[in-house]
Structures are given as structure tokens and as C-alpha cells.
Design a protein around this nucleic acid. Structure first.
Lengths: 165, 165
DNA sequence: GATTTTACGTCAGCCTTGTTGACTTTCCAA
DNA sequence: TTGGAAAGTCAACAAGGCTGACGTAAAATC
């Protein structure tokens, strides 16, 4: 089987070629998380804490339930992470004004500082990759990733407030 | 800051734009692993078993040490996985011919069948994503991922035997 | 030929991060 | 006004990483 391509944008790729894409995802994801992981090792935090900080930063005031939907884990799992972040004064949990069952989450100064440090490292790697791959590649990268997401993940992803891309 | 682009292939992207790439990786990776995860849940296996099956399939006869280097885990961790795969007759471990210290790993019929089932599902999703993103996007996708890998991961990745891309 | 190194396996114990189950507090609607 | 649903918390367990220590066989080195 050759890698031709017909009029409709239907791609003919061999299984081996697609498999290479699969391995690219595997190895790339390891690089993607390597820098934050390195920063966090030694602190009492891990990747789960990084994710929580990231999405609280992205949507200040978000509720635990919102965060749950985005992260796709159980509330008990998230709670453990939030508890330590709150105890260490990285995250502030404010009881809801209208609905007192809700907790609205915000980063403290300290939390924002760590989040910045983590995302700076991760952004630096992504920028470097973009630069190495060239301007044309960035669009393709994003398109394939978006098409790879589940329906609901894609909705979460698209609903970024600052969707100025 | 605008997203301009100068003569050198240096990209100016806002932090928010790069952050969106970061989130794309996060959500896409979840989709990427979702189908195999679903297949494996219920069996006594997990993502670690899938990875082992994948790379043994890719390089039949590979040694434990090779696999260790590719997967980037400790031998104790890998051993736990291999032990159960061997016990369940999905993987065969053959003592080395020239060097009897080595164990060469092969999939059994049963192991190959499960590997096929898992990779078929994963390939189907990737093909669908490629098709949705269009022919031009695939190249960019791969370029950015490759640039995102660590040095040694990239070497592992590039040293595919069937590197007919 | 003796020693050291390599490849592999295993036991024990720890940590992170997922899970389910059971529980409070709060809200809302019948 | 009361009973169910929703938001959040606590407890206990499992998967899959990790380190450290040890054993065995084979290979390599001196």
C-alpha cells in the first residue's frame, strides 16, 4: 500500500505510518510533561497539582464541579489535590455567594507564582518546537490534535474564554 | 502582542496562544488513550500493558533492557507488567541464543490478537483525525511532535526499523 | 582462572493519583 | 416542610510509578 491521496481529503496511509504517528504522540507527551515534572519533583506535588493550578489560573473563580468536568477525574481525586494546595496557601477556596454549596477557586500570589513558573517552562518547550517545525506546521499540529479529542473534551477546549486565536 | 511572523522562521505567538496548544495536547492525549483504555478495563490490564504489547509488537525479539530504555520506566515496574503478560500467555520470553543472559520477547498468537485489537482502535481514531484535519496538517502535526521530544526520545523514535515514512 | 560487570528477576516498601462508598451541608421543588 | 438532588469532604483501596537490596547466571576483563 502506498501513501497516495485522492481528490476528497481521504488519506491512504499504511498501518505502519499511522503507527509512527501513535509513537510520536507517546514520546512527545513525555517531553511535554518533562519540564514541569522536573520542577515539581522534590516539592510534594505532582502532575495532578499542575493541572489543577493550570485550569484555576485559566478560569479564576471556577467551581470544584467545573474543574471536575474539565479534568475528567472523580471529585474525591481532585479533592485530595485541592486540599493540599489550599493547605499550602497556593489556592483559595471561597464559599459561593448565591449558592453556598459551591466553592469558588482562586490562585493566591504564591499559587500564581508557581503556576507561572510551570507554564513558563512548558511554553518555552512548545515555542521551541513551533520554531523548529516552522510556521506552517503549527496550524496542522493544532488541527490534528483537535480532531483527536473526544466530543466533550473538544467542547471544553473550544470554550476557552480568551479564544483569540 | 500580535501573532506576526518575521523573516527568520521565528514565530510570535502570545502566551495565551501557546497555552491553547498546551491544552490541545492535554485534551488530545486523553482522546488518544481513551479507546485502548476502554478495551482494557475489565481485563486485568492497563495502559502499561498496552505499551509493552505495542513495543514488543513493533520490535519482536527485543530484550528487556531495550524495552526499559524505550518505555523509560524501572525494571521492577516493567517486570510486574511482563510477569502478568507472560503468565497469561500473551508474551513469550526466550533465553538468548548468543547471550544467554538476555530474554527475547515475542507476542504469542493471543498477545498479537490483543495488540491488534488495541492498535486497530487507536489507529482508527488517528486516521479519522488525519482525515478531518486534511492532508497538509499531518506533516505539521508530526513535525511539531518530533520537535517537542527530548533528545533521547527522539532517537528512540527515529530508530524505527520500518522507517519508511 | 579469578574478578568484575552485565542482564535479568524478585522481594519489600513507599508515593502519586486514580477509583468506590459513605457522609454532611445546602438548595430546591413537590 | 420535607425529601431528593447537588456540592463537597473523609476513608479506604488499587494501579502503576519509584528506590533499595539481593540473587543468579553469563559474559567480559584482568
Amino acid at each position: 500500500m502506498d501513501h497516495l491521496q485522492t481528490g476528497e481529503n481521504l488519506l491512504f496511509l499504511t498501518d505502519d505510518q499511522v503507527r509512527k504517528g501513535i509513537e510520536a504522540m507517546f514520546f512527545a507527551y513525555r517531553g511535554f510533561t518533562a519540564d514541569p515534572d522536573r520542577i515539581l519533583e522534590g516539592m510534594d506535588y505532582g502532575r495532578a497539582h499542575h493541572r489543577a493550578l493550570h485550569f484555576i489560573h485559566r478560569s479564576p473563580g471556577t467551581t470544584v464541579n467545573n474543574l471536575l468536568a474539565i479534568l475528567g477525574v472523580t471529585k474525591q481525586s481532585l479533592n485530595r489535590v485541592l486540599r493540599s494546595l489550599i493547605a499550602d496557601d497556593l489556592v483559595e477556596s471561597r464559599v459561593g455567594h448565591s449558592d453556598k454549596r459551591e466553592r469558588h477557586l482562586h490562585l493566591t500570589e504564591k499559587g500564581a507564582a508557581l503556576e507561572r513558573r510551570l507554564s513558563d517552562a512548558q511554553r518555552a518547550r512548545l515555542r521551541a518546537a513551533y520554531r523548529a517545525a516552522g510556521p506552517g506546521a503549527v496550524q496542522g499540529f493544532r488541527l490534528v490534535l483537535e480532531a483527536m479529542m473526544d466530543e466533550d473534551a473538544n467542547r471544553q477546549y473550544q470554550s476557552l474564554k480568551e479564544a483569540n486565536i
